[in-house]
Amino acid sequence: MPPARKRARRYDPAKIRAAVLAQSGHVRAGIRTLTPEQLAAPTRLGDWTVRELAAHVSLALGSVVRALEAPEPARQEVALLDWPFATVTAADRIDEDTRALAAGSGPYELYARTEAAFAAALPGAPDDRLVPMRFGAMRLGDFLVTRTVELIVHTDDLNDATGLGIPYDRQALAACTRLLADALAVKAPGGSVEVRVPPYAVVQCVEGPRHTRGTPPNVVETDPLTWIRLATGRTDWDAAVGGAKVAASGERAHLAGLLPLLGQG
């Protein structure tokens, strides 16, 4: 796990909570409409069907509930910018837990029950409370930022598999985009490349001459969903550039070797 040398940006706790609840509501509404044929359809996540994918989103949201039910840890072990790099270490456990959950309740009933428990657990829980999660103790406020990544990424997976067109909450999409952009700056610290994901994020990264004035010599620009798909391995760099989803100028503006940042689970 690369050390989180970059200071994490500040997120408005109230906006993050509202964003998680809003995106969760969009996901619930989408899952409610899934037919048996859609639930059995393949996804871009290995051999998971839509049923497993829906269970996984419940698992991601329910992790907050389970964390708040547990005793508070004595000390923080994971910072917000550590989390993206820790995710790749838990792929096997996540797969096992997801399959076990998918084998139980129906996807909509499971998700609705999980969301209700989440909404009930959140009020009164302070953002600086430490909570246990898969990779160690983390601030609740930071953990909720990571839930915007889980919800937005898997909303996109559900849309890709089913064509449902589940909406993306603007605040959740913004937080997801920013956290993944900041993770790139942690993984490849420097100032020779400017990565722009309008309207949500701009970061500088990659060792080399630092740009200080005017237009940077090395620029990468893309839209939020393309950036999220690149950062999570849903699409590859050459395909995105070839499909005009990414504009890259300058000899250092080639990020293929730095992506993805998260695993695909």
Rank of each mutant, 00 (worst) to 15 (best):
P167Y: 04
H154Q: 09
R178K: 06
P167W: 12
T162N: 15
T177Y: 06
A175Y: 04
K187H: 14
L164D: 14
G190M: 07
A185Y: 08
K187S: 01
I152W: 00
S192I: 14
D156R: 13
T155G: 07
L184H: 13
L180K: 14
D182H: 13
D156T: 02
T148W: 05
G165S: 15
E150L: 00
S192P: 02
I166P: 00
V153L: 10
D169I: 03
H154C: 05
A161F: 05
L180P: 11
A161G: 12
N159A: 03
A175Q: 08
D156E: 14
A175W: 02
L179F: 07
N159S: 05
G190S: 03
G163L: 13
T177L: 09
T162P: 15
L180I: 13
A174I: 00
A175D: 12
R178I: 13
D182M: 11
A172Q: 05
L151F: 01
G190C: 02
C176R: 10
L179G: 12
D157I: 10
G191P: 06
G191R: 04
T177H: 11
A161C: 08
A183G: 14
Q171T: 02
A174P: 01
G163A: 13
E150W: 01
D157K: 04
A175S: 11
L173N: 06
G165M: 08
D160N: 14
I166S: 00
R178T: 09
L158Y: 04
A188D: 13
V193S: 05
D169S: 06
P189V: 03
N159T: 07
K187A: 03
A174C: 02
E150C: 00
C176A: 14
L164G: 12
L184S: 00
D160T: 10
G190F: 05
A175N: 11
R178V: 12
S192T: 12
V149Y: 15
L173G: 00
H154E: 04
R178H: 03
A188M: 09
A185G: 06
L179C: 09
H154I: 07
L151C: 11
K187V: 03
S192Y: 12
A188V: 10
V186A: 06
D160G: 15
G190P: 03
E150S: 01
D169V: 05
A188E: 15
I166W: 01
A183H: 14
L184K: 14
L173F: 01
L184Q: 14
P189H: 10
Q171Y: 02
T155Q: 08
G165K: 15
A161K: 09
V193K: 09
V186D: 05
D169G: 07
P167R: 02
L151T: 03
S192L: 13
L158H: 01
G163N: 12
N159D: 14
A161Y: 07
G165Q: 15
A161E: 13
R178F: 04
V153S: 11
V153F: 04
R178A: 03
G163F: 07
T177M: 10
A175F: 03
G190N: 09
A188Q: 15
L184E: 13
C176L: 09
G191I: 02
S192A: 15
D169K: 04
P167G: 02
L164H: 15
V153K: 07
T162W: 15
E150D: 10
Y168I: 00
Q171M: 01
V186C: 10
L164P: 08
A181G: 13
A175C: 12
